[in-house]
Design a protein around this nucleic acid. Sequence first.
DNA 1: CAGGTGACTCTTT
DNA 2: GAAAGAGCCACCT
Length: 109
Amino acid sequence: MPSSDVLRLYRQIWKVARRIPRGKVATYGQVAELAGIPGGARVAGAAMRASKGLPWQRVLGKRGKNRAGVAILDPVGAAVQRRLLEAEGVEVTDRGLIDLVRYGWVPPR
DNA sequence: CAGGTGACTCTTT
DNA sequence: GAAAGAGCCACCT
């Protein structure tokens, strides 16, 4: 069980994750930065893992300059995430990669 | 305070 | 392009 402190922090991250619109995706680093934790990508990952009922499938691991990849390493979980994304209109390659130029979320200032 | 962990990311081999 | 190292943040023992 996470402490109340971590919950407060995670809530901030979840708040950001909830703003990601359908058909768009963001990276852990991006979510962390918007949540006020620059460089805290790993924290965002932990928060998403502990999330319930959030669009966690829209938060991906960055796998290059202009592309991201499904977050989950586990083949079964990765397949689920890929399915959810495709259901929202996000193109996912057979290798589980996504074009950030086309589907990357650009948060409103 | 020191050391270990992780749905991360960047650079170098 | 895969593998390895190092840097990063917050949390837990």
